[in-house]
Computed example of a mutant assay.
Amino acid sequence: MKTAVVTDGKYRASLAAVRALGEAGFSVVVTQTRQEAVHTPASFVSKFTKEGRWMEGSCRDADYGERLTALLQAYDRPVLFPTGADTLRWISAHREELAGTADFLVASPQALADLNDKETVHQRCLALGLPVPQEYDGPPDRYPVVVKPRCGEQFGLKSWERYTIAEGQAAYQRAYETMSQYGGVPIVQEKVSGPGEGVNLLLDQNSRLVCAFCHRRLREYPVTGGPSTCCVSFYDEKMIDQAYRLLASFGFVGMAMVEFKGGKILEVNPRVWGSFPMTACCGAPFVANYARAAQGEVLEYTPRNFREGVKMRYLFHDGAATLGYLRQGDLRRAWGGVVDFFTVPEALKRKGDQKAYRRYLRNSLKGRLG
Rank of each mutant, 00 (worst) to 15 (best):
E259L: 06
G296W: 03
Q73F: 00
E119H: 11
Y325G: 12
T120S: 13
F213V: 06
R271V: 04
A24F: 13
R89A: 15
D61Y: 00
N305P: 02
F286E: 07
F260E: 03
C282A: 07
G25H: 01
R358M: 02
R150H: 04
G370R: 14
A107I: 04
L326A: 15
V18T: 11
H39I: 03
C281L: 10
V6P: 08
F48K: 10
A37H: 15
G263D: 08
P139E: 14
D86Q: 06
K349C: 09
V6G: 13
S43K: 14
F26A: 03
D61M: 04
Q154P: 06
Y64Q: 13
Q205T: 10
G319D: 07
D141E: 15
A288L: 03
G57V: 05
T164M: 14
Y64D: 04
R67L: 07
G22V: 13
G367R: 10
A212D: 03
Y182S: 06
L80T: 02
G254K: 02
S180I: 01
T83S: 09
E346F: 12
V6H: 07
G352F: 12
Q134I: 05
L246N: 01
E267W: 01
V287C: 11
L246G: 03
M55Q: 15
A16P: 02
R368N: 03
T7G: 14
